[in-house]
């Protein structure tokens, strides 16, 4: 009788373990999938934010902007983003330049 009990107990421990592994796997899959989704959304958010910066302050990068006078009044709220944004844009430019250098266009 006691042997039966131990067998049952062993079985339930096994199932419990299996279930927890399954749950873990489930959350792992969900987590990865969701994280990727969230990461994609975040990247899109930052890209959109950069587009707004470009429309407002393109003239700081040498793009002519006839509205730059009025764009200035948004500057107090976006000043903190300004330096990182310019760095990002510069990086993007240098990446493009590097790629272009690999293929000899001349």
């Amino acid at each position: 009788m006691s042997g039966m009990e131990t067998k049952q107990a062993k079985e339930s421990v096994f199932w419990q373990k299996l279930r927890s592994v399954g749950e873990w796997l489930w959350w792992f899959v969900i987590g990865t999938f969701m994280d990727k989704r969230v990461a994609a959304i975040r990247k899109e958010a930052w890209d959109m934010n950069d587009n707004v910066m470009l429309l407002l302050f393109g003239d700081f990068l040498g793009l002519p902007n006839p509205m730059s006078y009025y764009a200035l009044e948004m500057l107090p709220y976006l000043a903190e983003d300004m330096i990182p944004w310019q760095r990002r844009i510069m990086n993007r430019q240098s990446i493009v330049a590097e790629k272009a250098a690999q293929y000899d266009f001349t």
């Binding site: 302050f57 902007n65 006839p66 509205m67 730059s68 006078y69 107090p76 000043a79 300004m82």
Partner: peptide, 23 residues
């Protein structure tokens, strides 16, 4: 709103817009 350091860093850019042709 922001720290004087940042204000100082973007001062030059403000000049650009301030002296732009449409200003």
């Amino acid at each position: 709103i922001v720290s004087p350091v940042i204000v100082d860093e973007i001062k030059r850019q403000m000049e650009i817009a301030y002296t732009s042709p449409g200003a």
